[in-house]
Amino acid sequence: MTLEFFLGHVNYWLFIILMMTGFYIVVSRGNYVKKIVGLNIFQVAVFMLYISIGKVTGGTAPIFPTDSQGKIKVDPDIVYSNPLPHVLILTAIVVGIATTSLGLALIVRIREEYNSIEEDDILEIEAAMAHAENEEHGSAMGGRA
């Protein structure tokens, strides 16, 4: 592994660490709000990866300079970064906040119905409900009431 390869890829690996931290929060934590936070971190780290695709060394933000009348000045010496990933991520950020707000609304309702937002408690309540249903409607193993 050459130094150039290492320097050219090290930030991708750092993004992966961030992504996986977020992913770990989602799959390992039982608190519903915390899962949403983890999901956000996961997604934001993916956004970083995208934005870094667009970066050109020595480049600048893709906004053309204008003169006093608002006319675009074309300057071939300026290197611009690739604007396409920026557009994609703008869309993705909006999608992210939409998902977050729906998730949070569901959490509020879950708390009202179950009086908890911990996965462990809720699984316990649901197991009890399923058990009661089986008592009433025949056991799950093929028995019928």
Partner: peptide, 30 residues
């Protein structure tokens, strides 16, 4: 009321799926 937790679980898994898909598209774009 279990519809709520069903929707929430679907939201978490669906979003993970969509994010994986976005990672895939990003790699392809690269």
């Amino acid at each position: 009321k279990r519809a709520l937790t069903a929707a929430y679980d679907y939201l978490i898994m669906g979003t993970i799926g969509a994010t994986f898909f976005v990672i895939g598209i990003g790699f392809l774009y690269m």
